[in-house]
């Protein structure tokens, strides 16, 4: 059974790495933040699966803390970026995000 748990954890880890594309490409801050929030949820699941696979009950506590505190970054984000607004209001974020994704952002 633990092989199955481990395989599932590996699969979820793969989905995190896949989801990184959203963080890298954006285009908006909201997209990046939302992807990171999703990783938090996936991470909780991976921790629970590892807890079963490795028979380490303490990992449930780690998962609990992650699930509980993932909201802190989200609240910090919402507090500073506000709720979605029309793009032409002055409070809209002034990132050059639209150019960002096209830019060759790799220095090698």
């Amino acid at each position: 059974m633990s092989v199955f748990y481990l395989a599932a954890a590996l699969f979820l880890l793969g989905t995190i790495l896949l989801g990184l594309i959203r963080v890298l490409r954006g285009p908006g801050s909201g997209d990046r933040m939302l992807a990171a929030q999703l990783f938090g949820t996936t991470g909780v699941t991976i921790l629970l699966l590892l807890s079963l696979a490795l028979e380490e009950s303490a990992l449930v506590d780690v998962a609990l803390v992650f699930a509980l505190l993932a909201v802190v970054a989200a609240v910090a984000f919402v507090r500073q970026h506000g709720l979605p607004e029309p793009p032409d209001t002055p409070t809209h974020r002034q990132h050059p995000e639209s150019t960002e994704s096209r830019e060759p952002n790799d220095d090698r």
Partner: peptide, 25 residues
């Protein structure tokens, strides 16, 4: 390697999550 600081911070948060998994291992 990020030019956008916000992106760098979000990636750093993700980095912390993956590190926690490494500590578990």
């Amino acid at each position: 390697a990020s030019t956008d600081l916000f992106r760098a911070v979000v990636l750093f948060i993700t980095f912390g999550l993956l590190l926690a998994l490494a500590w578990v291992r």
